[in-house]
C-alpha cells in the first residue's frame, strides 16, 4: 500500500469532501492562497477560491461564532485554527452556543462544524503554542473529539467528521504531522467511538493517546525482547470514548496504564480509570496507573521542555512498575 504523511492524509479527506459537497468552506488565517501554516489546505484555493477558502482577520471568537450561524443554515464550516491554542479566544461561542444549539432546538437545527488545529508539545513552541485542551471539550456535552495518531486514522476520522452533523474537534499532534503511514487509495471512513487495538498482548494494557501511541509502541517492541507482552489501545476518539474495548482488554490482562501527554488532573486518564473502577473492578490485579505530562505551562528551553513530557524511559518504567505490582 502507498505511504503518505499524516498531513497529506488529512488534506486528502478534506479535498475529497470539498469536491463532492459544495457547502463545505474553510476559515482560518493563511489557509487561502498560502495553503495553511501546516499545509492543511495546500492546492485547494486554486480550485475553490476565496468563498470556500476564506482567509480571515485575527478574530477567533468572531469567525467561530460566524461559523456557528453558517452551520445552522445549511453550510458545513471547517475552522482551521493552525495552533489549537487560539481556540481559547472563542470558548463562549463553543461551549455556550455550538455545543448547545442542537439540544436547545430539540434537534431541529444541526451543527455540522469541524474545529481543527495542531496540539501538543514539541519544537520549543513554548506555552502559547503547545496546548492540547481536549479534556475541556470531552467534559462538555455536545462535542465529538478525535485525536488521530497516524495517517490512516487521520484520513478516516476526518471523513467522518466532514459527513456527520455534530461539532467535531479534530486535533492533530504537531509531532505526528510529517510521519508517514499506509493509506489505501480506495474510499473509506472510520466511525467515531471505535478504539483500535494497535498491539496485542496479555501482560498489561496501555491506553495511549495521540502522540503517545507511536511512542508506546516503540517501547513495547523493546519490552517484547524481555518477554513482556503488552496490549496497546489507541482510543482514536475521546468523545465518544470506546470503553468496551478498554474493559475487554483489562479483562484479559488485569493491568491498566493510561499514557497521555496532557495534564493528569481531571484528565482522560482519570475518566478512564474511574470507569474501569465502576465497571471492571473485579478484573484488576493491580492499581490503575497514569502517565502524564507535568502539570505546568509549557517551558521553552529544550532542557525544560523535554523534562515535562513522558519520554520512552518514563513509559518503560511505568509499564515495568505496573507489571511488577
Amino acid at each position: 500500500m502507498r505511504e503518505i504523511t499524516y498531513t497529506e492524509a488529512a488534506r486528502e479527506a478534506l479535498a475529497e469532501q470539498m469536491a463532492v459537497d459544495p457547502s463545505i468552506f474553510v476559515v482560518g488565517e493563511g489557509i487561502g492562497e498560502r495553503g495553511g501554516n501546516f499545509n492543511t489546505t495546500l492546492g485547494l484555493y486554486e480550485k475553490y477560491g476565496p468563498m470556500r477558502l476564506r482567509d480571515t482577520p485575527i478574530v477567533e471568537r468572531g469567525f467561530v461564532g460566524l461559523c456557528a450561524g453558517a452551520a445552522m443554515t445549511g453550510s458545513r464550516p471547517v475552522v482551521d485554527f493552525m495552533f489549537i491554542d487560539f481556540i481559547l479566544d472563542s470558548m463562549g461561542e463553543l461551549l455556550n452556543q455550538i455545543s448547545k444549539i442542537q439540544y436547545m432546538s430539540s434537534g431541529r437545527i444541526k451543527m455540522p462544524i469541524v474545529l481543527r488545529g495542531c496540539i501538543g508539545i514539541g519544537g520549543a513552541a513554548a506555552t502559547h503554542h503547545s496546548g492540547s485542551y481536549y479534556p475541556l471539550f470531552v467534559h462538555i456535552p455536545g462535542f465529538r473529539v478525535a485525536t488521530p495518531s497516524n495517517p490512516y486514522d487521520a484520513k478516516g476520522l476526518l471523513k467522518t467528521a466532514l459527513t456527520g452533523d455534530d461539532p467535531v474537534l479534530f486535533l492533530e499532534h504537531k509531532l505526528l504531522l510529517n510521519r508517514r503511514g499506509p493509506v489505501p487509495e480506495a474510499e473509506y471512513a472510520l466511525p467515531f467511538g471505535q478504539a483500535a487495538v494497535i498491539r496485542e498482548g496479555s501482560d498489561a494494557t496501555v491506553v495511549a493517546l495521540a502522540v503517545m501511541a507511536p511512542k508506546v509502541l516503540d517501547v513495547c517492541d523493546e519490552l517484547a525482547k524481555d518477554r513482556l507482552d503488552i496490549e496497546v489501545i489507541d482510543p482514536r476518539t475521546l468523545a465518544p470514548l470506546d470503553m468496551a474495548t478498554i474493559l475487554e482488554s483489562v479483562g484479559k490482562t488485569g493491568r491498566l496504564l493510561i499514557a497521555d501527554e496532557t495534564f493528569g488532573p481531571c484528565g482522560i486518564g482519570a475518566e478512564i480509570s474511574a470507569q474501569v473502577m465502576e465497571q471492571g473492578f473485579d478484573d484488576l490485579d493491580a492499581p490503575i496507573a497514569r502517565l502524564n505530562g507535568v502539570h505546568t505551562p509549557t517551558p521553552y528551553s529544550p532542557s525544560l521542555e523535554s523534562a515535562i513530557i513522558p519520554d520512552n524511559a518514563a513509559i518503560e518504567k511505568a509499564i515495568r512498575d505496573l507489571v511488577a505490582e
Binding site: F25, M51, L66, A68, G69, M72, T73, S75
Partner: peptide, 13 residues
C-alpha cells in the same frame, strides 16, 4: 456573529 454566519451561508450557497 451567528447572523453574519447565516449571511455567509446564503452567499456561499
Amino acid at each position: 456573529l451567528q447572523g453574519a454566519g447565516a449571511g455567509y451561508s446564503f452567499k456561499l450557497l
